[in-house]
């Protein structure tokens, strides 16, 4: 009798979490959003409608090229993204942080908070080294991600990611937090694949393809050949 009770309890909890998982993973609800969006008739309405609450945005700066592309994205869409918003910046090297400080001089009405993340994978690391750093990064990044995630409750927000391995860990924590904290609204994650990726997605891209709300590539052949659910708008950086 007791085992039957226990088994059914486990079953119920398990089902609840599967339902929750289905609810938070993007590929079950992207379709409905696009329909809603077209009916609403574009972005202008949306921006005005929600203009009372400023945006909170998280960006992750990889290094070198990734940081460069991210800064270009922010610059190009500054009216939407850097309009009196709070910017949470994840970084793992000082050079990127400095570039960002310099970049934000033009956007003094934004609040900026910096969060240091350890690197998930050095470019030339061995397998064992990678495992070590990944575990370290996991623990340290959880604290950061949780802080940022709960700061974004109930306001328009966006996680904008574009490349390095740390983005996988960030997304993983985000989804896990959502899975556990049932009342949380879904985190909005947009991933923009690097311009350097023409024919094959990056490892980060392959993983995040299944996690993020919108996956954007910059070359048509990448969408057509490998990632049919991705969106393509041409070169964005």
């Amino acid at each position: 009798m007791k085992t039957a009770f226990l088994a059914s309890l486990i079953f119920i909890v398990f089902t609840a979490y599967v339902v929750r998982l289905v609810a938070i993973l993007p590929f079950f609800h992207t379709q409905t959003r696009t329909e809603k969006e077209t009916r609403d008739g574009g972005s202008v309405v949306r921006i005005q409608k929600s203009s009372q609450k400023p945006l909170k945005i998280f960006v992750f700066l990889g290094s070198g090229g990734h940081t460069g592309e991210m800064l270009r994205l922010l610059q190009n869409y500054k009216d939407l993204l850097l309009n009196e918003s709070t910017v949470y910046v994840g970084y793992s090297d000082q050079a990127s942080r400095q570039r960002f400080v310099c970049f934000m001089k033009d956007f003094t009405r934004c609040k900026v908070q910096y969060f240091e993340f350890m690197k998930a994978r050095e470019v030339k690391a061995t397998f064992l080294q990678s495992v070590k750093t990944i575990i370290g990064t996991l623990i340290q990044s959880f604290v950061n991600v949780a802080k940022i995630r709960f700061a974004m409750c109930g306001v328009p927000h966006l996680f904008l990611l574009n490349g390095p391995g740390t983005c996988c860990i960030i997304s993983l924590w985000l989804k896990l937090i959502e899975l556990v904290v049932i009342f949380l609204d879904a985190s909005h994650i947009v991933y923009v694949e690097s311009l350097a990726r023409i024919n094959t997605p990056s490892l980060t891209g392959k993983i995040l393809y299944w996690v993020v709300d919108e996956f954007v590539v910059q070359w048509q052949e990448l969408r057509d050949d490998c990632l049919p659910r991705a969106k393509w708008f041409g070169i964005l950086v």
């Binding site: 959003r33 696009t34 809603k36 969006e37 574009g42 972005s43 949306r46 921006i47 409608k49 929600s50 945006l55 270009r72 190009n76 869409y77 939407l80 993204l81 328009p156 927000h157 966006l158 909005h188 947009v190 709300d213 919108e214 954007v216 969106k231 708008f233 041409g234 070169i235 964005l236 950086v237």
Partner: peptide, 19 residues
């Protein structure tokens, strides 16, 4: 070289932000 600003992408971003 074509300009980088793309209004469809901007719409997608704001769609995600304000969904």
């Amino acid at each position: 070289f074509p300009v980088s600003h793309n209004s469809s992408f901007e719409r997608l971003l704001s769609g995600v932000i304000y969904s």
